[in-house]
């Protein structure tokens, strides 16, 4: 048994989530090989070989892999697939786009978006937007699996010394052409992918008062969220809404300010790694799921919070 993991990268550096997926792969089997396809991507292959847990790096470098096109990646993966019991990638837009195309070519029923490895063929995965967890066992001879990166710690990026094997280019797929990529150049991370989210609720009392949230968000490089109540009250536009009809977010840190914690809102953020609640009502339901609760008037607490953050020498971003 061994695992073939498909790396996501920018040709210059590894996408951080790949480290989380490597860690998940090591829980399936110790023998984790990473396949990287790119162009002028030697630095990535090198850094991958240093990741703890990686036993071998297969590096395929060609102009056709300069940009990620699943249709081009698949023939290479299929060439190696025979030797592996598992093929694994991240359950983000990269892996979601890629893996089913691999699985179908191999006539395998894929297991998507796992959050826990129970054994080499049994996994835990959320269904119904995380409102239920299913334990599933794959009966296919080979498994194609995508991994929810935020459910696993990243593998240490050093400590490994894997060999780098040069692989052969696969056939180019001519019917799909990459045109362009526009990274959203916002000063603020996207709500759906931010590492930190700070959200305001009706406790803010006005749209203008959201500037208190913005100031902290700037400092922490956090995305700004809101409860439906705040959106309904017109304090902020609905693209910030977290919860049932809005977005589901799973950041490392979620700070809920002046949000009582209507269940619809909780459904949208309860999987966050660390939850902080700041609310003056000590009985607010949000405290029942908060790791750290601060019972305080937000109009005093937020400026103090910013002040305390300013005192810190370093802030992870």
């Amino acid at each position: 048994m061994s695992v073939l993991l498909i790396a996501e990268h920018s040709n210059k550096e590894l996408k951080p989530f790949t480290l989380n997926v490597i860690n998940a792969a090591t829980k399936i089997d110790e023998d984790v090989h990473v396949l990287i396809m790119g162009h002028n991507s030697d630095p990535v292959a090198k850094s991958l070989s240093e990741v703890s847990g990686v036993k071998k790096v297969i590096h395929v470098d060609n102009l056709i892999y300069e940009n990620y096109v699943a249709e081009n990646y698949v023939p290479v993966i299929l060439k190696y697939a025979d030797k592996y019991s598992h093929i694994v990638s991240a359950a983000n837009t990269f892996g979601k786009n890629l893996m089913p195309r691999v699985a179908a070519k191999l006539d395998i029923s894929q297991v998507s978006d796992i959050i826990k490895v129970i054994s080499s063929d049994t996994f835990l995965r959320p269904i119904y937007a995380g409102n239920a967890f299913a334990t599933v066992k794959s009966n296919d001879p080979k498994k194609c699996v995508t991994v929810r990166p935020t459910s696993f710690e990243p593998a240490p990026s050093s400590g490994g010394s894997a060999e780098i094997e040069k692989g052969d280019t696969g056939e180019e797929y001519s019917s799909t052409k990459f045109v362009k990529k526009e990274e959203i150049k916002s000063d603020r991370p996207e709500l759906g992918t931010a590492r930190i989210v700070i959200s305001g609720g009706r406790g803010l009392q006005s749209g203008d008062n959201f500037k208190l949230i913005t100031a902290v968000a700037d400092k922490l490089n956090a995305a700004i969220g809101a409860s439906r109540a705040a959106v309904d009250a017109g304090y902020i536009t609905n693209d910030h809404q977290v919860g049932q009809t809005g977005k589901v977010v799973v950041p490392d840190l979620y700070i809920a300010v002046g949000i009582s914690g209507a269940i619809q809102h909780l459904a949208g953020m309860k999987e966050s790694k660390v939850i902080v609640a700041i609310n003056k009502d000590g009985e607010a339901p949000i405290f029942s799921i908060a790791d750290y609760g601060l019972e305080a008037d937000l109009f005093e607490a937020l400026p103090q919070f910013l002040e305390e953050l300013n005192k810190l020498n370093t802030i992870q971003k």
Binding site: V111, P126, F133, A134, K137, N139, I275, F287, I289
Partner: peptide
């Protein structure tokens, strides 16, 4: 794929209350 079981997600437990910022 065999669906072995479907469960409710574990309920999150309340953490601690901090005294100040």
């Amino acid at each position: 794929i065999e669906q072995i079981k479907v469960e409710e997600p574990p309920k999150r437990k309340a953490g601690i209350k901090v005294a100040n910022v």
